[in-house]
Write a protein that binds this DNA or RNA. Structure first.
Length: 915
RNA sequence: GCGAGCGUGGCGGAAUUGGCAGACGCGCAAGAUUUAGGAUCUUGUAUCCUACGGAUAUGGAGGUUCGACUCCUCUCGCUCGCACCA
């Protein structure tokens, strides 16, 4: 059983007891206990106000210097304020920022507020307080907390996503999406006006399927006169033209299945639906198609995937994004419906198993289901569809351990062998992936196998595994084999390997116009609208005649109106829908319309904030390209791994649009990414209010100071690791800082200690200094902050013992420690006789020669076991080392008179004698 | 189920990437100082044994090597992602 140390007891009392008496007596105790320690409180306040007044950390676009952009993931200003996890990443980035400044870089190190979000809106629903007021209050508190940690942010570049001067430009970027299309032939986004011009000039025609066909395309040229299978722009009606253009936009409206809760009158996110009912209230939730805004991220899938190669990110994050994008190649194959003029298109990654397709499955939502279902089966099909609609996406995946489905009564014809196979519907096929329909090959797909077993459908083997035991099982239909093998039961394709078969069958399908090579992505277009009040309104008006217009850039920002109630409208629309003054608009030309009442999701503001920092106060544009070009890409981005996919993918996506349109000059925004790990409570559990193990940064700063807080956050362990908090650990680094202080400042006189003199340092001291400079520098470069601190502890332990301390050594040490503990170092720097801040002092240089020991202790092993240690000079030759090692009595004894077969000498490490 | 990562003293963690395992800090113990407590300083602190010596130790079992925390194979445990994507 571990004794609870005093510091821990105090912390527990402070957090758990609001009793005035105990609280104040503890405060008194603290003041007394800390009396003879350095006055971190005064020092920290002093330097924070100097930095603020002097704008010490103002970022300057100085072309004569190399630049360095260190970015933190900006926080959501919550009512709870900071938790100890925030300062971890912020301290790491601050150390790097301060270090780079001293290394001569022009540094951009900004902070801001990701301030739209549900909590402020929910608080508004409860209390009627405007979310803007709540948000402002929370920002003020969090800013106070962040400032109290002494981070070297350029506060003049602060951004707040809820500030109209900021979201004006978020809306502006939305208009860029809305007014752009994606040119597949060049794999990039372009202004939609250009497309219209090209169509009007008849450089492009409109294909039958609404696709875009270049006039000089093959096939068109061959035919003289009017193009066949394509229409000129002028041949389309105004409505057709509008529809065509709308279909090309990168921001578009679509009917999308959402989680609709009739009882609550609102749409819910997947996380808000548990077991088919709403998390709040337990009301039924159904899948219902609703009009939503979408962003066409899928057009960028290929580039989002390919460009991951160029960023220096943790491989795990790259892999998450790769999987999320989920690119797979295969074939699309058309199956004719028996006796009807319809066909079903399926996507498969295994076209080589076509001969083994024994049935087909459509997603319940597939448009063909109603058309092909026979009268006998219609009833069953309808009720199954209804059942499926009631399940949320989560249920359909999570709870579907047992497969369900219904036969439609219809049959399809397998294009490779003309066999008729039954068509089923089942919710294991997702409407949102591929074509929403599959060919089922139960012998070679686990899911199809489970389904076929349950409904006693045919299983035909078409791939032969090498392993004979497996082969027997698969042949008997007792096992599903989904790996590659050799083709069987596949007509003239028998004997081919899976890879060969895929190539040949795809070619065959294309030759016979029954299919083609196809690529599919798991990534889906981004559902970009929310039915909320506290978000950026869409700058869009829906006119009575069905036309939809976007506001002009000059009309931005579009500011949401004040509302009486923040509750949802009850119609699936946002609270904005109830404000008729705001919603109903009349255009200058007299036409009437309604404003879009959806708002953008919280992700929107965070998609481009790093760009705004480069030119935060620009009123004419989101940012000047010259500034962007100077600062971007972000050299170091530090934040939590929870944003591995969504935020980091969404902002890359926005960045690529801006890149295509020429607003930014680099294809990727974030060069290097580092994830800080999670900090657990003192009990090793996740911090949570209910467990009562939450550590409040304010409390730590009050008791130990910001420098100790920063130092401890870094000393805990590797930045990326998950690790538990320990108040005793804070005490440890606090002691270290006190030791540094006492080594330099005489406690009695409060003046520079008399042991500090302008003298030459002895060789040991020089060596340790240079080792420290070397280690701290390289550790900052590799984010090994914990080992950097441990080296500085070794330094101070050495220096504290010296009777006379060379001033220059002390000064260099103060500079090296300063990125970690800036306040105390500024103070010491001043007291060492310097004017002004040390923030731009030159970083000390180490001399590699001076880091080396003159005498080296070597371990001497016999057969790998250490028998003795010898001391040799650093210049000793291999022969001299061997001679000395073999002369050792202990070694001679261990060798038992045998002669060495081999002697291995690792310079400055060890000697191993093999006998 | 799939994928990734991690297992080192009482605790957080080091280990120049195959070369003296346990740096540094916490905790603990003894001592100094002190009226006392706190603070500070000094020393010790992986485990075991027949103890100024020796043996065993990096979740476990094998392997490669003169030499393995580090590389390989198997295995156990924990954590975090993803989860019918055809």
């Amino acid at each position: 059983m571990q004794k609870i140390p005093a510091a821990q007891t105090r912390a527990v009392v402070l957090t758990q007891c609001n009793c005035f008496f105990i609280d104040s007596s503890i405060k008194g105790f603290f003041e007394m206990a800390k009396e003879d320690r350095y006055k971190f409180n005064e020092i920290e306040k002093k330097w924070q106000s100097i930095w603020e007044q002097d704008k010490t950390f103002k970022a300057v676009e100085d072309k004569s210097k190399p630049k360095y952009y260190v970015l933190d993931m900006f926080p959501y200003p919550s009512a709870q304020g900071l938790h100890v996890g925030h300062p971890e990443g912020y301290t790491a980035s601050d150390i790097v920022a301060r270090y780079k400044r001293m290394r001569g870089f022009s540094v951009l190190h900004p902070i801001g507020w990701d301030a739209f979000g549900l909590p402020a809106e929910q608080y508004a629903i409860k209390t009627g307080t405007h979310p803007a007021d709540t948000t402002q209050k929370n920002i003020d508190n969090m800013r106070r907390q962040i400032k109290s940690l002494g981070f070297s942010y350029d506060w003049d570049r602060q951004v707040d996503t809820t500030d109209p001067n900021y979201y004006k430009w978020t809306q502006w970027i939305f208009l860029k999406f809305y007014n752009s299309w994606f040119d597949d032939s060049e794999n990039k986004a372009k202004p939609i006006l250009q497309l219209i011009e090209d169509l009007e000039a008849e450089k492009l025609y409109v294909g039958i399927d609404g696709d875009i066909i270049p006039t000089d395309a093959e096939g068109l040229q061959a035919i003289s006169g009017d193009p066949v299978g394509a229409r000129k722009w002028s041949e389309l009606s105004k409505e057709q033209q509008r529809e065509f253009i709308d279909d090309q936009r990168l921001a578009y409206e679509a009917e999308v299945a959402v989680n609709w809760c009739p009882e609550l009158g609102t749409v819910l996110a997947n996380e808000e639906v548990i077991g088919g009912v709403s998390e709040r209230g337990g009301y039924p939730v159904v899948r219902r198609p609703m009009r939503q805004w979408m962003l066409r991220i899928t057009k960028f899938a290929d580039r989002l995937l390919a460009d991951l190669e160029f960023v220096d990110w943790p491989t795990s994050i790259k892999k998450l994004q790769t999987d999320w994008i989920g690119r797979s190649t295969g074939a699309e194959v058309d199956f004719q419906i028996a006796g009807q003029d319809e066909f079903v298109r399926v996507f498969t990654t295994r076209p080589d198993t076509l001969f083994g397709a024994t049935y087909m499955v459509l997603a319940p939502e597939h448009p063909l289901v109603d058309i092909i279902a026979t009268d006998e089966q219609r009833q069953a099909v309808e009720s199954y569809k209804e059942q499926a609609a009631r399940k949320s996406d989560l249920d359909r995946t999570d709870l579907a351990k047992d497969k369900s489905g219904v036969f439609t009564g219809a049959y399809a014809i397998n294009p490779v062998n003309e066999k008729q196979i039954p068509i089923w519907i089942s919710d294991y096929v997702l409407i949102s992936y591929g074509t929403g329909a599959i060919m089922a090959v139960p012998a070679h797909d686990e899911r199809d196998y489970a389904f076929a077993k349950k409904f006693s459908l045919d299983i035909i083997q078409v791939v032969k595994p090498e392993d004979e035991y497996l082969q027997a099982k698969v042949e008997a239909g007792e096992l599903c084999f989904s790996d590659d093998g050799i083709a069987v039961n596949s007509g003239r394709f028998d004997g081919l390997t899976t890879a060969q078969f895929k190539d040949e069958i795809t070619a065959w399908l294309e030759d016979n116009t029954k299919g083609k090579l196809a690529v599919n992505y798991k990534l889906r277009d981004w559902l970009f609208s929310r039915q909320r009040y506290w978000g950026e309104p869409f700058p869009i008006i829906h006119l009575e005649d069905g036309e939809r217009i976007a506001l002009d850039e000059s009309e931005l920002p579009l500011i949401p109106p004040h509302v009486a109630s923040y509750k949802a409208a009850g119609t699936g629309e946002s609270p904005l829908a109830n404000i008729s003054d705001w919603v109903n608009v009349t255009l200058p030309d007299g036409r009437k319309g309604k404003r879009e009442t959806n708002t953008m999701p919280q992700w929107a503001g965070s998609c481009w904030y790093y760009l705004r920092y480069t030119d935060a106060k620009n009123n004419d544009k989101p940012f000047d390209k010259a500034n962007e070009d100077y600062w971007l890409p972000v050299d170091l981005y530090i934040g939590g791994a929870e944003h591995a996919v969504l935020h980091l993918l969404y902002s890359r996506f926005w960045h690529k649009l801006l890149y295509d349109l020429g607003y930014v000059s680099h294809p990727e925004p974030f060069k290097k990414l580092v994830n800080q790990g999670m900090i657990l409570g003192q009990d090793g559990q996740k911090m949570s209010k209910s467990r009562g193990n939450v550590v409040n940064p304010d409390e730590v700063i009050n008791n130990y100071g910001a420098d100790s807080m920063r130092l401890y956050e870094m000393f805990m362990g590797p930045l990326e690791a998950t690790k538990p908090w320990s108040m005793q650990g804070v005490e440890g680094v606090y002691r270290f800082l006190n030791k540094v202080w006492r080594t330099i400042i005489d406690e009695e006189t409060d003046q520079l200690d008399s042991s500090i003199k302008d003298v030459e340092a002895d060789s040991d001291t020089v060596r340790i200094l240079h080792q420290t400079i070397k280690k701290v520098s390289s550790d900052i470069d590799t984010f090994g902050f914990n080992t950097a601190i441990s080296q500085m502890m070794i330094f101070i332990n050495h220096i504290a013992k010296l009777e006379v301390k060379p001033k220059s050594v002390i000064e260099q040490f103060v500079l090296v420690l300063s990125p970690f503990a800036p306040h105390v170092c500024e103070e010491l720097w001043q007291r060492l006789g310097h004017y002004g801040s040390l923030a731009y002092e030159e970083w000390p240089q180490h001399d590699d020669e001076l880091t080396k020991e003159t005498d080296i202790e070597l371990a001497v092993q016999v057969l790998g076991k250490i028998k003795d240690k010898i001391v040799v000079s650093a210049e000793a030759t291999e022969e001299q080392i061997i001679e000395k090692a073999l002369a050792s009595e202990k070694v001679i004894a261990a060798m038992e008179g045998k002669t060495p077969k081999k002697v291995i000498v690792i310079k400055s490490r060890l000697v191993n004698i093999v006998i």
